[in-house]
């Protein structure tokens, strides 16, 4: 770890998500996540960056409790994640997967309403309050007009917004997103980041998002984690991570350049 050691809080119970020595392998002895320890503080808007295949998606699945690490442990609000009942965890932690193909033409509303399932009993349909919550979640991402449309007819970006709305309908403390910006156009990318910032400012929501779009990070994000071949290579505020010498190691590419312009950091690589 290069730029570590800038822990803002001395009290370990303060982190919303804390990972200690996480390791994970799909095949024996090929660690996709190799000894990662990190802390995601309450109310932080954080990004996870890294090259393709560096283990970003696997790492956030471990953090979201969708997979169990082979070694190490994840703590959520100081509690071991694996000890928290699934349904209770789903009320505090929402996960937005990368776009998955939808086969059945569920309406966007039906999809967002499933975000209420951690709150509804198994044999009960969602009630009027749940419907209102779902509509509000759709409105928050600016997709209220999509409610009655079948998701199979939506564009990739629209579907992504619906997936974010579903996560918001869970009323989570923490949002974990796997490349939510990938299918979004310029305007909607910016809008998504604005929404995440608003949620942080108003409700203190914490978010961790995997992204390849490095232009989004500075100054919008509080914290950036950079992963390289399964290990945490750097972490810190965007200004500290988005630097030539750090990024060229993160991406194994000496041509990566990061420059500040009008208060933002722009990143590119020589072609």
């Amino acid at each position: 770890m290069m730029a570590s050691a800038s822990f803002t809080s001395p009290n370990p119970a303060d982190a919303l998500i804390e990972a200690r020595g996480l390791r994970f392998a799909y095949e024996a002895d090929r660690w996709v996540v190799d000894d990662v320890s990190l802390r995601l503080e309450h109310g932080a808007l954080a990004a996870l960056i890294g090259a393709n295949g560096s283990g970003k998606s696997t790492l956030i699945r471990l953090l979201a409790g969708l997979r169990s690490p082979d070694a190490g442990e994840v703590f959520f609000s100081g509690q071991p994640l694996k000890g928290i009942p699934r349904k209770r965890l789903a009320r505090s932690l929402a996960y937005v997967p990368q776009i998955n193909p939808m086969i059945f033409p569920f309406t966007a509303m039906e999809v967002v309403l499933t975000g209420r399932s951690p709150y509804t009993p198994r044999f009960r349909f969602e009630n009027r309050f749940d419907v209102e919550q779902a509509l509000e979640a759709l409105a928050t991402v600016g997709a209220a007009h999509l409610a009655p449309r079948p998701v199979t007819e939506l564009s990739g970006g629209e579907r992504q917004l619906v997936a974010v709305a579903r996560a918001l309908a869970q009323e989570p403390e923490c949002l974990i997103l796997d490349e939510p910006a990938a299918a979004l156009d310029l305007k909607h990318r910016a809008a998504l980041i604005r929404i995440l910032r608003q949620l942080r400012d108003r409700q203190g929501m914490t978010a961790l998002m995997v992204t390849h779009d490095l232009q989004l990070l500075d100054p919008a994000f509080d914290r950036v984690f950079a992963i390289h071949r399964g290990s945490l290579l750097a972490e810190g505020p965007p200004g500290k991570v988005l630097r030539d010498e750090v990024l060229s190691r993160v991406y194994d590419d000496p041509k990566v350049r990061a420059r500040k312009l009008e208060g933002r950091t722009f990143v590119w690589s020589g072609t």
């Binding site: 979201a64 969708l66 699934r86 349904k87 965890l89 789903a90 932690l93 929402a94 996960y95 997967p97 998955n100 939808m102 086969i103 059945f104 569920f106 999809v111 499933t114 975000g115 399932s117 951690p118 997936a163 579903r166 869970q170």
Partner: peptide
């Protein structure tokens, strides 16, 4: 019902 919309999202919903 949740699985019909995707395994991973169903898992994240509990």
């Amino acid at each position: 019902h949740l699985l019909a919309m995707g395994e991973e999202s169903a898992a994240s919903l509990g």
